[in-house]
Nucleic acid binder design. Structure first.
Lengths: 242, 242
DNA sequence: CAGTGGTCTAGACCACTCT
DNA sequence: GAGTGGTCTAGACCACTGC
């Protein structure tokens, strides 16, 4: 009948879409519980099983967290367990330890054409530019350059960035109501330039992992571009293929 | 009651386990259909919904493929759509194209201590060692060194490797009944040595991506160790974080 | 048309948390 | 004990495939 786009979508997907809209609108904040399954099934006029299937998918995408006996909660980057979700770097030997984040620079600037493209901005629009170091056990391992659309992050300054605990994504959602839900990374091997070499304590020309990350919020709207240079002599980037 | 290990597992997980055992035992081969849901629910004496939930999980782990109106099939590496599932390399510009695999070397040798460790062998056990090049549009991009436990791959030789189409994993399952279902990768940036530089057509010391992959079959048994050196001037390794 | 997987319902009972 | 999510059932109907 309609070979191009499905004119039909099952009920549970429509429910999922409605819940997504409420999440996007901020009806329930990160860390807070959403209404119970029976409550939602009453609100939407469907069976509990249909609500369950919608929530199952959202939980599978890490947007919601189910806790038996307690309820279903909006996923949050502020919880300790979530700290390492987006940092795939592991030490070659031993356990992962909490890194120290050392802020090097914060300023507003005009978006480069590359940053404008990935953040879906017009060339020259204002961005917040952050440069920082991740230090593991006293050794600088990651040099990050972060670009954020300035209008979404009004008031972000060095003091806020220094005061935060854990990953920046917790700060984004607490202070600016922008919750990051997904990211794409592109990884290359590059030679350290003089600047990176000095900051990371390696020879100029030494091989570094270059990780370009674009992070998205609800509705696939890009909200952060981050270029990380990783020292991988004592660490490696870990990935599972399934 | 039992705080250490769950003494109980839900019915659908037990069903899942039984289906997994049949898959491992080769009761149904890759590409073949498994029995229908009603058939399985009769066999196991549970409702169709319980079987569905078991199969849902297996399909979510890419061990089974559902096809509405046709049946549920054992996932296979021999199908065209599966070709790129484990190769995360993309061109910086343009579409992915089918690479040519250029075999450099095949031989039996004793496992190094590193290979023995990841493949869970005793040091010195026999492995098949394969060295090959992946060539995209005439340019060598990936240099792979592959180690396989020799007992599992009796009779693997250059002729078989040259005759195959697509990824080696299709060959493994067709010729040796070993189906790869999961892999772990560890990624570092390294400097090209003289040998790699000459084969990949870069300067000695040029940065390369070094991707160490351990591949597993049913029951988390390791069956392949692969070290790939990737040129990433025209390509990048892509990864999604969710 | 019969057979497959996909959706939806209603209801029962279980496991867990909190008060 | 009340309220939450988790499991299991039985049955109805829909959508897709192939004969």
């Amino acid at each position: 009948m309609n070979p191009v786009s499905p004119t039909f979508s099952p009920l549970y997907r429509q429910i999922k879409e409605l819940v997504l809209q409420s999440l996007d609108a901020g009806e329930w904040k990160p860390g807070e519980p959403i209404p119970s399954e029976v409550e939602l099934s009453a609100r939407f006029g469907v069976s509990q099983g249909t609500v369950r299937k919608a929530i199952d998918e959202l939980a599978g995408e890490n947007l919601l967290v189910r806790r038996q006996g307690k309820g279903t909660f909006v996923a949050s980057h502020s919880e300790p367990v979530t700290q390492f979700r987006f940092l795939r770097l592991h030490p070659n030997e031993g356990e992962r330890e909490q890194p120290e984040s050392r802020l090097l620079e914060v300023r507003r600037q005009r978006a480069s054409s590359e940053v404008a493209r990935v953040l879906d901005l017009k060339a020259g629009e204002s961005v917040v530019y952050v440069r920082r170091l991740l230090v593991f056990g006293g050794t600088p391992i990651v040099l990050d350059e972060i670009s954020l659309p300035a209008p979404l992050f009004k008031g972000l300054d060095a003091q806020m960035l220094n005061a935060h605990e854990g990953s920046y994504y917790g700060l984004y959602e607490r202070q600016f109501g922008t919750r990051m839900i997904r990211a794409e990374e592109r990884i290359r091997a590059v030679a350290a330039d003089a600047e990176a070499a000095s900051v990371l304590g390696v020879e100029k020309g030494a091989p570094l992992l270059c990780v370009d990350r674009t992070a998205y919020t609800y509705g696939d709207r890009p909200v952060e571009f981050r270029r990380g240079l990783y020292r991988t002599d004592q660490h490696h980037y870990r990935n599972s293929l399934v």
